[in-house]
């Protein structure tokens, strides 16, 4: 397919949607913003799209836990459409608040495709604060994640107060590593995963910054690759001569679009 279609969700306090939409457009997709209500009302259908994106933001003000109320609204209205979307092997990405939604809806990590059962969470940073700071991520080369293919490390900002990744049990933690669910980890200058603050900005267990499902097609991450689609987004741009280069975060969206082009 020449131009995969991307549905980027909006509404109810989602707020990093413009740049997410822009990232997919720059990556060569036919991307549009659709209000959640318009899907619930049937004005748009998930089946018409190949990629579904849950953007960052503060849906419902993070009241009752980040992403939770939006996730419930989505789940209680659209679970059938969503199951079909996933069964068709289509791609899903959630960033920051979007990642929180996917996790709380139980779409990640969704072992054995057990959808809508929550097994991990994202909660308050150890610092007790919202923080906006740039971090370095290390991609897991043995992950099946199609979004992170070919990436070794990536500089991106975190902008969250509830980004600490916690698995429900030791067993789940192990399983995340064994099956290649772990896609991104916070790392130090040498590329080694780290628990040191602020390199690991929230105290995430095993420095986990992003995970995918078993197929590698459903993916979520706390930091914002859509905030690094231009060289000048990188705070080091003036020091490293990045003014005219593409933002490194764009790679994530290109990966998805290229994969969808071939697959669908």
């Amino acid at each position: 397919m020449e131009k995969p279609k991307v549905l980027a969700l909006t509404g109810f306090g989602v707020n990093a949607d413009t740049e997410l939409n822009r990232a997919f457009l720059m990556a060569g997709a036919d991307s549009r913003l659709v209000h959640l209500n318009d899907i619930i009302l049937g004005k748009s259908k998930l089946e018409d799209f190949q990629i579904l994106a849950f953007p960052g933001g503060f849906s419902f003000g993070d009241d009752l836990g980040s992403g939770k109320v939006f996730a419930n609204k989505f789940k209680f209205n659209l679970s059938e459409q969503m199951r079909k979307f996933l069964e068709d092997g289509k791609l899903v990405i959630g960033i920051c608040n979007g990642f929180q939604m996917l996790v709380k809806m139980g779409l990640l990590p969704a072992f054995e495709k057990k959808y809508f059962e929550q097994t991990v969470t994202l909660t308050f940073n150890d610092s007790g604060r919202f923080e906006d700071r740039w971090v370095r991520l290390k991609a897991n080369p043995s992950s099946k994640c199609i979004f992170t293919k070919g990436i070794e490390t990536l500089s991106v900002p975190v902008r969250h107060g509830e980004g600490k990744f916690i698995p429900m049990s030791e067993e789940i933690r192990k399983r995340l590593h064994e099956n290649g669910h772990v896609a991104f980890q916070y790392c130090d200058a040498n590329g080694s995963p780290t628990m040191d603050y602020p390199l690991n900005p929230n105290g995430s267990v095993d420095s986990i910054a992003g995970i995918c499902d078993e197929s590698g097609r459903v993916f979520g991450m706390m930091p914002h690759p859509e905030a690094h689609i231009f060289g000048v987004n990188n705070p080091q741009w003036a020091r490293e001569g990045l003014a005219n280069s593409e933002g490194a975060g764009l790679r994530i969206f290109r990966n998805a679009v290229e994969f969808a082009k071939k697959e669908f």
Binding site: E19, D132, R133, V232, P235
Partner: peptide, 23 residues
């Protein structure tokens, strides 16, 4: 104070409030 404000949502930030070798 600055760290606790999102100063780059909307994706257009070029000169942020804190810049330099160590941001």
């Amino acid at each position: 104070v600055v760290r606790q404000y999102d100063h780059e949502v909307r994706g257009g930030s070029v000169v942020k409030p804190l810049m330099g070798a160590e941001n």
